[in-house]
Amino acid sequence: MASGVKPRVKVPKSASAGETVTIKTLISHKMESGQRKDGDGNVIPRSIINRFVVDFNGQNVIDVKLEPAISTNPYFQFDATVPESGAFAFTWYDDDGSVYEDKSEISVG
C-alpha cells in the first residue's frame, strides 16, 4: 500500500547551538498488522512501515524498528541536539519496498 502516505514532521525553525529540540513526526499509513480478516475470512496480508530513521547532517538521532503492534499512522516524539545549522532527514521504510522521505531545515543563530 503506497497510496495516501503522507509524512508530517514538526521541527522548530531555529535554535541556539547545542540546544535540545523536540521533534514530532507522524506518517499516515494504515499499518495493516497481518492479523485482521476480511469479510470472507481471508487474512489481510501484513503491510506496515518496518523502519524509521532520523539523521541530522549525516549523524544519527534515532533509529526505530517497527512491528505490527505500532498503531495506524505511526507517531513518534523524541529530542535531538542541534550542534549547527543543517537539516533533519526523516526516512520511513515500507514493507513493499517504498521509501518515504522528508527534510526539515533548522538554522542556528
Binding site: Q59, N60, I62, K65, E67, S71, F76, F78, A80
Partner: peptide, 20 residues
Amino acid sequence: VATVTFGPLNPTHAVSTRIR
C-alpha cells in the same frame, strides 16, 4: 512492539509513540 536505537545526537534517550 518496537526496537529503538538512540544515535549520538539524541540527548534525552526518550521517545513517545502509540501502540496496539
